[in-house]
């Protein structure tokens, strides 16, 4: 294997009151440097659990995760996480939130301030730097989350349904911005989503999960040229085929 992020036979079993629950089984995944990979699946298929394991926030019960050649033992300095509910500290201004990861990494205050300003500029948040998170809209909050994740120049961004709580218009806007950032920074992106169109729009490669126990049921390379047009025939054909790959899990229920 030559991937930047490698999962080797990763499994996860939780102990619950009603007995052991197997959340993940036999996950083998390999992300090349600079690759944009979407983990696609319905709720409860273990895709978020896998991301948490890769982020070092949970431990695998089986197998191992290797990032940049080192076996994972807790959060890696090479990765940054963007959380679904943005995870901003309500008592910190936007500027302080953006600087937090650098503070945690021991970056000097002067350097912190300069880098934070740079990222605020890049994400269009300069005018909101001294606001508190609750004074921002959902889309702007997630921009802060992304800016914060980028400050430490991570080799990989781990994104856990980052746009799931946003309205369609804002989501589309942020997807485009994310692609622009990804293209300019050339970071690896691991992106968890349950949106088929979102995955097709963003990913180089889509890893499809199925539940009980969570496992990889298909891996699909997306060869559509960028920027992608959701109205194009190729886009719609791929969406349709992915829908069919997910449907068996739904046992015939219609997908929105």
């Amino acid at each position: 294997m030559t991937g930047f992020i490698e999962c080797r036979n990763v499994g996860k079993t939780y102990d619950s009151a009603s007995g052991a629950v197997e959340a993940l089984r036999g996950i083998n995944l390999d992300c090349a440097p600079g690759e944009f990979v979407c983990l696609l699946g319905l709720s409860g298929c273990g895709k978020s659990t896998l991301l948490q394991i890769i982020a070092g926030l949970e431990s695998a019960s089986d197998g191992a995760v290797v990032i940049g050649g080192h076996e994972l033992d807790g959060p890696s300095p090479l990765t940054s996480v963007v959380f679904q509910d943005h995870g901003l500290f309500p008592w910190m201004t936007v500027r302080k939130n953006v600087a937090f990861n650098m503070k945690a990494a021991g970056v000097k205050p002067a350097e912190r301030a300069a880098r934070a300003d740079e990222l605020l500029e890049m994400t269009g948040l300069t005018a909101f730097a001294d606001r508190y998170p609750h004074e921002l809209s959902g889309g702007m909050r997630q921009r802060v989350g992304i800016a914060r994740a980028l400050t430490t120049r991570p080799k990989a961004l781990l994104m856990d349904e980052p746009f799931g709580a946003l309205d369609a218009q804002t989501r589309g806007h942020l997807q485009e911005e994310l692609l622009r950032i990804w293209e300019s920074q050339r970071t690896t992106v691991l992106f968890v989503t349950h949106g088929i169109d979102e995955a097709v729009f963003l990913a180089d490669r889509i890893v499809v999960f199925s539940p009980r126990p969570g496992r990889i049921s298909a891996v699909v390379d997306v060869d559509l040229p960028r920027p992608r047009d959701p109205e194009s025939a190729g886009f719609m054909a791929l969406s349709r085929s992915l829908r069919h790959k997910l449907v068996p899990d739904l046992q015939g229920a219609p997908l929105g």
Binding site: A55, L57, G74, P75, G87, W91, F100, A105
Partner: peptide, 26 residues
């Protein structure tokens, strides 16, 4: 909020920083 502690852990914040910048203000 549990996510906030996760954010700090993912950023490899020291336990001291977690106390000072997250737990105390929260």
């Amino acid at each position: 909020e549990r996510t906030l502690i996760k954010v700090a852990r993912a950023a490899r914040a020291s336990e001291w920083l977690i106390f000072r910048d997250i737990i105390l203000p929260a």
